[in-house]
Design a protein around this nucleic acid. Structure first.
Lengths: 208, 208, 208, 208
DNA sequence: AATGAATGAGGTTTCATTCAT
DNA sequence: TATGAATGAAACCTCATTCAT
């Protein structure tokens, strides 16, 4: 990479990290492009060389940050000796919840975006050099764990929405209780949900 | 109520309904106070007579609309012959999901705010003449159904977050599938969650 | 005075005193009519029954407050045994300076308006029931003191401007020194000014 | 200075001179920022690039205009053959009074600000490229004139306040008489004041 | 005489975007 | 590529004033 290219990347990165800091501290609506470029130490015009507007850089950041978090969680799973889908899934959830509990700004930022849309590549614009997509990582995990079955997607959807939504409330507002206290109930609920998808589906089996 | 008072209420109501319409059609960020007052047919100063700013009227609207929806659902439950907590709960959920499916603008507006905070009176400012609070309605429902037990709050929290979060995705984006298709799985999952809270709690019972 | 008349005067007085308080604490520009009526506990429309606008009540207040101060000073002089113009003049100045030093808000308010214009009835609008005008009080003082002479008006003008201007700086900002320290020099200067007007006027006498 | 820098200065200067013109013709309160930028031919945003608000540009203008006037007066003194403090002082006063009599708008603008605060660098913000401070100019004049003595500052203060205050009344309102008529009396008074500071101070010497 | 809800002109201020350098 | 002064539309908000009650 030439000197020019390096310099270019440096400015872009400065914009990314500054924007993230400002979005998480003062919020999207109260962050202006002027704020970002000033703190990043680049000129106003430079911003427009790389991003269309505030929402453009926001979307790219969400996509990037979420992907990064899942990828780290996935790597952590792979470094354990765990086998089987369920243990690995709980490890993954645990990892993510811990990370978010430690970085509430991040949680607030990706917020309820930690949901299904993210997994299905609903985002049009990605960081160009982003790694593998999240959904494929989970599929990988399931394949590696010998897990396979119908309705798998629905099961994942249900679990992800439940985890994302409850952790938002428990971590950020300690409502109705802190995450650590709620976790046992959440995991128990997830275990039951897994079973609800393993047993003959609604309307399929004999429910007499 | 005198002529003056009536006129006062009329203006305020015009602001409320116009703001709701604009928020749900073009979004909060793209709705200006000028838009609201112009469409409502009142002067700009009048807006500031009743609301601090855009966010003030938004919050009051969310609180009001959510409360209204729950109250209607509660009333509908009471008009049925259903007895027992579970059937009533499913009727309530069904009622709300149907209402939201029919009014996606409302869903998008109260969006993921259809969550725990709403139930616990976390909102400081209510419409002055708002009816009973939502949480007390649910408690009423449970008491009437002879349902009582510890961890009831946790159970409600878990279910509400799951329903709110999944319906957002299924109704608004048909992701991963339309609500009607997902419903059987959701209800089955809820049934299992209910059971997970009925059985001895995590770490409490014998889990051999 | 009937009950109605009394009530009327009460409201007007409330407006006067509230306006004075606000003008002296937050300044004219930052005081709104809304502020005044709210604090005075009367309705907005009531303000317009008695005053044209903010500047109207301001002018009437200045005129009133200045006249009041001079009248008190005059009365104080009259209660002493002092005779002769000079001793009485210095007593008068002393009285006023002390009063202003004790009430800096008042000084700031009548500020540099404590000047010639005030003495010559330059103000069009007076408080209807204001007492005798200031200039006639001084004339009275001079007549009572057996003082009379040409150029008397010029002498008074010169002294009043000097006192008003220097006390503004010394009392409010202690610049270049506090009033108490400056006073001896001021009085000495005034004594010399008196002499400058007693001696043959400029261009009149033989100045060889 | 580059083309860009020149253009920048041109805009700022246009704002300064337009603001001065409007402030002096229609007054501060009745001049809006919209008026200024429109007449100056720049965009509204440009104003906020250089000034905080109306009061900011006003203060900078007062400081600038007063300094300019004093500097011109000082230069004029230096071009004469006058020696000794008193003749030079009277020349200086004369110069300033004439200038103000010819430019009543300027007098009204710097108004009673032509006072002690100005001399002691009480102003925090100056035009960046402002010349020497006024007080140091007077000190220079006194040093050059071989004049030195205690209480010099007090003497200057007394004279400046007297001149500033009386000229305001005489020039602007011809009250109690036009400046030209009052001048002989003013100068005679100043001569006496000078003597009052030359003779043993109040309470210091034998005044029998 | 007194009220105070309603007005809306008109002010201030912000900020995304452009473009000459 | 990078700059940052300049723009000006468009937002916000205030407040003196009116007038029906």
């Amino acid at each position: 990479m030439g000197k020019l290219e390096l310099n270019k990347k440096k400015k872009k990165d400065a914009l990314y990290s500054t924007a993230f800091e400002l979005f998480t501290t003062r919020g999207l609506a109260k962050t202006t492009i002027s704020d970002i470029v000033e703190k990043a130490g680049v000129a106003k015009g430079t911003f427009y060389l790389y991003f269309k507007d505030k929402y453009d850089i926001r979307n790219k950041l969400i996509s990037h940050k979420t992907g990064e978090l899942f990828y780290k969680a996935y790597q952590a799973v792979m470094e354990t000796d765990l086998t089987g889908f369920e243990p690995r899934l709980f490890f993954l959830i645990d990892y993510i919840l811990d990370a978010l509990a430690k970085d509430k700004a991040l949680l607030l930022f990706i917020s309820k975006n930690l949901s299904w849309g993210m997994f299905r590549g609903a985002f049009d614009e990605k960081l160009p050099d982003d790694g593998p997509q999240m959904y494929s990582l989970i599929e990988q995990l399931m394949a590696d764990s010998g897990f396979s079955g119908e309705k798998t997607e629905l099961m994942l959807f249900t679990i992800i929405e439940l985890v994302g939504s409850t952790c938002h409330s428990c971590i950020l507002y300690q409502q109705p209780m802190p995450m650590e206290e709620y976790k046992p109930y959440l995991y128990e609920a997830i275990r039951h949900i897994l079973r609800s998808f393993s047993s003959p589906g609604p309307g399929e089996g004999n429910t007499d």
